[in-house]
Design a binder for these strands. Sequence first.
DNA 1: CGTCGGAGCTAAACCGCATTAGTGCGAGCA
DNA 2: TGCTCGCACTAATGCGGTTTAGCTCCGACG
Lengths: 363, 363
Amino acid sequence: MDSLRGTGPSGPEAQPPNGNGRSRPRRTTIRDIARRAGVSESAVSFALNNRPGVSEDTRQRILGVAKELSWHPNSAARALSAARAGTVGLVFARPAKTLGIEPFFLQLVSGMQAVLSVRASALLFQVVENMAAEMALYRQWWSEHRVDGVLVVDPRVDDPRPALLVELGLPALLIGGPTSTGTVPSIWADDTGAMASIVDYLVGLGHRRIAHIAGLPELIHTKRRIDSFRAATRKYGLSTHDSVATDYSDEAGARETRQLLAEPGPPTAIIYDNDVMAVAGVGVAGELGLSVPSDLSVVAWDDSVLCRLTHPQLTALVRDTHAFGSHAAQQLLALIEGEAPHDVEDDVPRLEPRGSTAPPPLP
Amino acid sequence: MDSLRGTGPSGPEAQPPNGNGRSRPRRTTIRDIARRAGVSESAVSFALNNRPGVSEDTRQRILGVAKELSWHPNSAARALSAARAGTVGLVFARPAKTLGIEPFFLQLVSGMQAVLSVRASALLFQVVENMAAEMALYRQWWSEHRVDGVLVVDPRVDDPRPALLVELGLPALLIGGPTSTGTVPSIWADDTGAMASIVDYLVGLGHRRIAHIAGLPELIHTKRRIDSFRAATRKYGLSTHDSVATDYSDEAGARETRQLLAEPGPPTAIIYDNDVMAVAGVGVAGELGLSVPSDLSVVAWDDSVLCRLTHPQLTALVRDTHAFGSHAAQQLLALIEGEAPHDVEDDVPRLEPRGSTAPPPLP
DNA sequence: CGTCGGAGCTAAACCGCATTAGTGCGAGCA
DNA sequence: TGCTCGCACTAATGCGGTTTAGCTCCGACG
């Protein structure tokens, strides 16, 4: 009798304590499946991973048993032997105090996961204070084998991260555009085309004095927008100022708007690089006795509830952030699989005209 | 000569291909450290994990070598042998289309990570469409051994999740309050006290007709607020309506505000369960020719940029979401360590009076 | 009719670390 | 002097998979 112990086609057996003090139930392993199906563990592995080495009959039988025992691979074991973590990392470097409204963020993440989840990858996500911490985290994750690759957001003009990623050999995708040191592949939205379409639209309405209140000048995409703004206004021979840079805050948006509107020959239309500043700008216009859109047209880059909470509602640039996230995840997974890196320019965003834009006042 | 091969104090050696097609550099393992320090692998493990079994001298020497070779533990290997994933999970169940402004979210996550990172734990984060997917994800994560525990947000009145978590034996912490089935420990903010303080404040200003536009009625915390609102208004003998439930959207906020203000004997103050609805409510008041705060006082639950973008700025209930996240993470880690589960009520939020509240108009 | 080859499967090694069961040695004690 | 005990350390095992090297059996082919 005793000789049968441990060899029978039993499921999980008694629960040995696991050092933790508490005893957790033993999970089913491929060993359990092997025993019950009467084959070796390797056969089970072959069957479960859809690789040759077992007959179709046996494969089906094994799959049946696996389902019956509701087996799932232990991700740690798999990561250890297959040298694949099944995880990608995403870091947000931002001082805790400035963590504010991020309509962009959840959309992006949710888009990424639509792709990742079907490829059995998870997303390791972390918010840190600054870029130094972000880089330290990349080092740590990679050396601990925690991730197979990372998605890097907010690329900057002189960005130290690509060099690090190359040095580490950590597969990575820059979300937001190639940096000057273009050594890491990137995906980005067509800010240039988007800006051009906004200027086209405003000029079409009759505007000749257009301003652009931009975001952080260190960000690559801000640079693209600024450059494109200059090119577009030159194209039409408009005598506008250069874009003004801000930190994206409502205070900055209000301050710069006030500044612009106080000048002689003030703009009749302002393009804001985010919705928060646009709303702040509308507030300033109100204070100054200007009405939107009859005295001043306002366009917000990026759409969110905010743009629909104001009166009038804001004309905004909407983009499919969800899809953008999906594409990014796809690219990264391809990279991890060993595909040759290449840059990708995503779709051009669409301008959604609402109540905040109209022809300029008659001179 | 040959006999020395592989036994010398060498660092990582030649790079064997790893099945992937690409060959990655071999990482340093405790084996490398052992060789170079001239001790056994176990000695290294003891030294690195600060446990007895090695002399202080040896320990220091080993630590020195480890740093020199810049060794980091392979998380998969550690997870496999220690039966600890070093990861906690967080799921957001929300239809992709309604993913909007979440000022709350990043703060919460960043607070969690302040605690998790010092305990060498990472956060696995996922956004899914609905609660069924969320539950499936818990099953999967747990069976794959991917997480040691999960943080569960948005507890509901008849919440199926606690039962599942108990069934799985997956350590979990409910963020937002104990459910009726109270089988899973929870941490929550003192909504009851917060609501009482708001009503106190408004009554102190002289208001007698106060309304409450609440959020999703299925959520536990909404229920607490609604109950507390009723209790508080009873206490003062106010003849107010019951709270009205919404889906948190700006449309719902606007609709319910319009409804309330159209009635005979309309409220002179409205408490909104989030800032988006509060802003929408201010908009409606403006349309109806009512001015805030002289005709109508408005209080928003939860503070964000939004509350400072309106004119006047909104009186709001601010809470330290970052700290809340930290406390939650702390509780969960304690649970995972095997500590006895218990509920925790967090600090009471603070009311920040701004321009949107004032004494009611004279009758 | 011998043998070659492939299909189907098993045994064993390995991934990197933690942990348990020894082993050798010097100090303490009777 | 002999014996025990504790310390510092090593050897071996296990975690749950994947993968490589064999091994066996059978049919096809020369």
